[in-house]
Amino acid sequence: MEDIIIKTRDIFREIFNDSSLEITREMTANDVDKWDSLTHLTMIAKTEAVFGIKFKLKELVKMKNVGDMLDKIQEKL
């Protein structure tokens, strides 16, 4: 899981253009200033590319926070 967290954190840093951004399991879109629908689309595409996975539509709409996303990535690897 440690490796997943670091790679995901790096994706967030790149997408939100913030090299000091840290992620937590409880973090949601409400906690990150520029997290909107378009950055969300970019983030999902980037995450899929980095981990070589594909999220299903119904998985995407059930991810309530970063923790749900990390668990789903781990499940798919």
Binding site: A29, D36, S37, L38, H40, L41, T42, I44, A45, L57, L60, V61, K62, M63, K64
Partner: peptide, 28 residues
Amino acid sequence: GVASWMVRAALFQEYYPREALDHAQKMK
């Protein structure tokens, strides 16, 4: 626990063509 824009974004990603999403990205 999920905002409507997140569901809408997921649906657009699934069904709208790649070029359509790229067009939207350019208009951010």
